[in-house]
């Protein structure tokens, strides 16, 4: 049980965070005074020191590192630790920690990175969690409805557009003109002749809202030319090959995207949970 707990990076994080905060901010309690001039070098102090140096909060690894050190290396480590601890305490005594914004920012930043690092190590995707995530954010994967069509355009203000449209419509249907053969008919439109799997918003940006609404009234047919539909530019005869209604896809179809979103989300969550955990250990008194 304890072993499992010690392997949990979040526990490490919390311990590390507590140690860091205790070190930086719990300055000057009564009991502390007794130890002010004594630096205790024990196994746990050295292990903590090693972990901070390598920024890897892994007790086992630190254990191994300590065990693998020869006399010389160990002496150096102890010397470094004592040196750092002594200077740190001296600085603390001189009040250098207080109101030093660099120390403050640096400390906060450091904790944020530790939190981020912890979160980054949770890189495996578990099926159950992924499904739960997908259900929760299903709306994000909604696929907008789309239209695929060819149009023959009849400009406003030339001849009699309505009559031309009527005659052209009859001709297109009588001659069973296909999408590819519609080129010789009609006037040049500003944008495209063919629209493939385009969303209503996109269509509205090219034709205006009135056209978009008109299009939504048509039934798809690969045989028949329909219309005319009115846009802000003129009249349009439409061969609406396909309409695909909006839909919520299954997980299997968008799994790649969901996985990457899930990992990103999980990372942010873990980081946030860790930071919240620290924040909650404090009582906030507002004296505005």
């Amino acid at each position: 049980m304890l072993g499992k707990l010690l392997k949990d990076p979040l526990v490490h994080f919390t311990l590390a965070g507590m140690a860091l905060f205790a070190g930086y901010y719990a300055v000057g309690g009564q009991e502390d005074q007794l130890d002010e001039t004594t630096i205790v070098v024990d196994r746990s102090a050295l292990l903590t020191f090693i972990q901070y140096r390598s920024k890897a909060f892994d007790a086992e690894q630190a254990n191994e590192k300590l065990a693998s050190m020869n006399e010389q290396k160990r002496k150096e480590l102890i010397r470094d630790y004592v040196r750092e601890e002594a200077l740190f305490r001296e600085a603390k005594l001189l009040g250098m920690m207080e109101n030093d914004y660099i120390v403050r920012r640096r400390s906060v930043q450091k904790l944020e990175f530790i939190a981020q690092g912890v979160a980054e190590r949770l890189g495996e995707v578990n099926d159950q969690e992924l499904t739960a995530y997908f259900e929760k954010f299903r709306d994000d994967y909604y696929v907008s409805p789309s239209y695929s069509f060819t149009h023959v355009f009849i400009k406003d203000g030339v001849d009699n557009p309505e009559l031309r449209a009527k005659a052209l419509l009859e001709k297109l249907n009588a001659e069973r003109v296909g999408n590819a053969d519609a080129t010789p008919f009609g006037d040049r439109f500003l944008y495209h002749r063919n629209y493939v799997e385009r969303t209503p918003d996109f269509i509205a940006s090219h034709f205006g809202n009135r056209f978009k609404d008109g299009l939504s009234q048509l039934e798809a047919s690969v045989e028949r030319w329909q219309g005319p539909i009115v846009s802000k530019y003129g009249l349009h005869l439409i061969k609406l090959n396909a309409y695909r209604p909006g839909r919520a896809p299954e997980l299997a179809e968008v799994r790649h995207q969901v996985e990457s979103d899930f990992l990103r989300w999980q990372k942010i969550q873990q980081q946030e949970v860790a930071i919240q955990g620290i924040v909650e250990r404090y009582d906030v008194e507002t004296r505005l």
């Binding site: 695929s148 069509f149 002749r193």
Partner: peptide, 13 residues
């Protein structure tokens, strides 16, 4: 293969 329309679109877009 995606759509019969693409092949008939303008040569470049």
């Amino acid at each position: 293969a995606l759509s019969p329309l693409v092949a008939t679109a303008a040569p470049t877009q």
